[in-house]
Design a protein around this nucleic acid. Sequence first.
DNA 1: CGCGTGTGGGAAAGCGCTTACCAAGGAGTG
DNA 2: CACTCCTTGGTAAGCGCTTTCCCACACGCG
Lengths: 344, 344
Amino acid sequence: MNAGVRSPTLHDVAREAGVSLATASRSLNGSARKVNDAYRERVQAAAARLGYTPNLSAQAVAKGSTMTVALVVGDISDPYFSSIAAGVIGAAEESGFIVTMAVTARDSERELALVRALRGQRPRVLILAGSRTSDEPSQQALVAELTAFESTGGRVVVISQHELPFDTVLLDNYGGARRLAAELVGLGYRRFAVISGVPSLLTSRDRVLGFLDGLAEHDLTVPADRIVHTEFTRDGGFAGAVELLEHGIDDVELVFAVNDVMAVGAMSALREAGRIPGESIAVAGFDDIPTVRDITPALTTVQIPLIDVGRHAVELALAPRTAGGTEIPVETTVVIRESTPARK
Amino acid sequence: MNAGVRSPTLHDVAREAGVSLATASRSLNGSARKVNDAYRERVQAAAARLGYTPNLSAQAVAKGSTMTVALVVGDISDPYFSSIAAGVIGAAEESGFIVTMAVTARDSERELALVRALRGQRPRVLILAGSRTSDEPSQQALVAELTAFESTGGRVVVISQHELPFDTVLLDNYGGARRLAAELVGLGYRRFAVISGVPSLLTSRDRVLGFLDGLAEHDLTVPADRIVHTEFTRDGGFAGAVELLEHGIDDVELVFAVNDVMAVGAMSALREAGRIPGESIAVAGFDDIPTVRDITPALTTVQIPLIDVGRHAVELALAPRTAGGTEIPVETTVVIRESTPARK
DNA sequence: CGCGTGTGGGAAAGCGCTTACCAAGGAGTG
DNA sequence: CACTCCTTGGTAAGCGCTTTCCCACACGCG
């Protein structure tokens, strides 16, 4: 069983069916050309008998195009990315595409290398869900690479901010955070702390900005030493909360973490320090990943329809190209839960 | 920019560098043949100038083999699968493989269709992480398909039970559940309920079996009406708990859900019904997905090193083939947390 | 100085497909 | 019934690579 029986080829099928290669090819895929039903059935029967599966690579080189979508994410085990991936895979499969995936581990050097490597697959579509950063110098090289990819017929879709000159699924991070701030103020909160990602991370920056602007509308501010910058992960959130606790945050009423996994980490840290989330301190996050409605207290957050985001990305990619790059804006909606009870 | 400038080919590079196709090919990939340094540099410079990326499909057809790993999961947004996927992707990338992914949505018909389609990619490795079921008739067709794949040189690795005649990363579901039961009895628990998946799901069945056997060792049993069968998801767990509550479980001390996401759902249902997890009722799960240490109360569970499971799967696939299928057993370890406080 | 040997570039034959292009037969038309 | 047009099977030329030969050349040796 080990040995090299090679897969049956179209040639084998044609011989088995007693027809030419061309006829075999035409009967097994939806070619424009019509083929006699009797022939087609013969070919299909032969294919089934032999267990023939068309070699996708060979098809790709013959046709000069593939049916693959390449997806680049930051970290597939992060629910944010895995939900987006679920949407992408679902939509891609519906259109008969296969998806290949690569993870950047949130490193933009690595992202560049991956994009470069992925181009070798000649995918029809390249979707970047890795969080964009601003100041990186590799950003320029990335744009060059992506532009080259588009100019050879590929489609690029980026998810998040419209920083790059490509089709974009736009997440309203700023607006969502701003509305969240407004609602929290409405609930009676006045003194805040913020756990943010590194400043160059666009997603994080926009959320912080929106939150602060939302507060500013009510003449509220967050002192600089109550805004800490950490990793965009659960452990980052934990560490951020620890840092805040060291600064002394006895009078802080609510901690806003720029994403849910960070909020979850922060809640653990706060709890360990004796500040009970939802009771002696409120916590809010961002994303509405599936688990946060089941934690205790359930987390107040800003919902992004992550699965839809993934679906939109492939819809965008499969739609006709437009000049200058289309944007699909995705709404974010504030969800108040028990982690931020109204202050009497 | 829209239009069809096609990607530069090796031919273009060769012309640009003033060498033959063969020399260009040899200098750009680690071929066995040596090529003069001066030539190689010329070729590399030309490739860089043109922005050449080798066409992986063409390479695949020329070489007759690819560098891809195909991964089949049940649901990528489930942390169980996404953690495994993270391991697979990490290990695959380290070995220069790209991974393509497909999701079965836990439907074994669909799994069969996917495997069939994935074979078209001629991947070197096919990893099945979708939960195996027993009685399905499509199981046979699956085995046939996978066997055919192996006989044409591919490698198959399945994760979970050794039900299929292929290399396997074996999760000790039975043993983990059994040890969990023992520990819980040690903590003073005597009256249990179980929320299980559908009976045909092997993973679920083994965990229930192990748990019951663990109890039996201490002469404890779980009455049949205290074992409910539901979906293997968060909502399934919720529904399962609701069902148990309807049966009346006032005297039940601990609910064991066969996986963590179900346990989390069950906790929410119990809490809504006024049974506070970790206080008026204990809950235990299985898997140790990342979030459960951060929920309240932190969940007692059986840890599976999910990332490692993914890594092992690709190691197994890349190791020399052995007769009859290798198994890599992965240990599961009981983690007691606050959701199962010791009963005085 | 003749010969064997080794080195490394190039020509060309594939790899498994798709798809012009060609040709043969049947249908339609006056 | 002669002619054109349409249909549809087959032939063969690619697609972008790798790899097997072949060959020219340089070198070492007796």
